[in-house]
């Protein structure tokens, strides 16, 4: 069994609106998947289905050899997730929140406490370990979320726009970190709208548009298939968007009050 994640014929509708129209995807161990697509293309829905946050869907999803429809949820202790929105029980202190998460993952309190504190220090926010998360800045909250996803040494990481609000230095640390984790054999599912970061960190790009996968391969392959010179260009082309110059011009006109 080579695939860490295996998705076959995944479909999902909200009412009459079909969001995912048949996704097939095999992810191997150690891959860093850049999962990209325009707003509303179905990226987050896919991730949520894999994580078991959404349960009514069509198709087959296997993760770490477990069928996610099964009762057995032990695979969840090998998964880390950083959601797009930093929803967190803010009135807890970082210590209270992180040890809670760690214990849920089955860790011992003291180990979770030690690890969480050390990680906070390494991310440069060790001094607020005993402060309420509600008093954190956006970047500090995001770092706390990232730590909560890494605490249990997961085999698969799902990162949804993980760099929001994080300063440039920490971004460098984080990119380096992803590379090392991939070398360790961790599988990373990275979705973001910031194309140059995706281009840099991903070993494979999966582009989804209107509920379907429209491109799949490493960045060199995509480039040589002459889809564009950068990921941004490829993205524009495949999502059928070439209007940006006209739209920008119209916006300037409205601002200046020409029309």
């Amino acid at each position: 069994m080579d695939s860490i994640i295996s998705i076959k014929g995944l479909r999902k509708s909200y009412g009459s609106k079909e969001v995912l129209k048949g996704i097939d995807l095999e992810v191997k161990r150690g891959e860093v998947i850049g999962y990209i697509g325009p707003n509303g293309a179905g990226k987050s829905t896919t991730v949520k289905i894999i994580l078991g946050l959404i349960s009514d869907f069509e198709g087959e999803v296997n993760i770490l050899g477990y069928n996610i429809r099964d009762e057995d949820i032990s695979y969840k202790s090998r998964v880390g997730y950083v959601p797009e929105t930093a929803d967190i029980y803010e009135n807890l202190t970082a210590r209270e929140y992180l040890t809670f998460i760690g214990e849920l993952y089955g860790m011992d309190y003291d180990l979770a406490d030690k690890k969480a504190h050390r990680l906070m220090e390494l991310f440069g926010i060790g001094h607020v370990y005993d402060s309420r998360i509600s008093s954190f800045s956006k970047g500090m909250k995001q770092k706390t979320l990232i730590i909560s996803a890494l605490l249990n040494d997961p085999d698969i990481l799902f990162l949804d726009e993980p760099l929001t609000g994080i300063d440039a230095n920490s971004v460098m640390v984080f990119k380096e970190l992803l590379e090392l984790l991939a070398q360790e054999g961790k599988t990373i599912f990275y979705s973001s709208h910031i194309m140059d970061v995706v281009e840099k960190v991903s070993s494979r790009i999966v582009l989804i548009n209107d509920g379907r996968i429209v491109a799949d391969g490493n960045i060199e392959e995509l480039k040589t298939r002459s889809m564009g010179s950068s990921l941004e260009n490829i993205f524009n082309q495949l999502t059928g968007f070439s209007d940006h110059e006209n739209i920008a011009r119209d916006i300037v006109n409205v601002i200046k009050g020409v029309e």
């Binding site: 994580l51 078991g52 946050l53 949820i73 032990s74 695979y75 969840k76 202790s77 998964v79 997730y81 959601p83 929105t85 929803d87 967190i88 029980y89 803010e90 009135n91 998460i101 849920l104 993952y105 089955g106």
Partner: peptide, 15 residues
């Protein structure tokens, strides 16, 4: 809770 949205953790944890 005022932060009721934080409840997503129940779903992704091995509970």
């Amino acid at each position: 809770s005022a932060n009721y949205k934080g409840a997503w953790i129940y779903r992704i944890m091995p509970i």
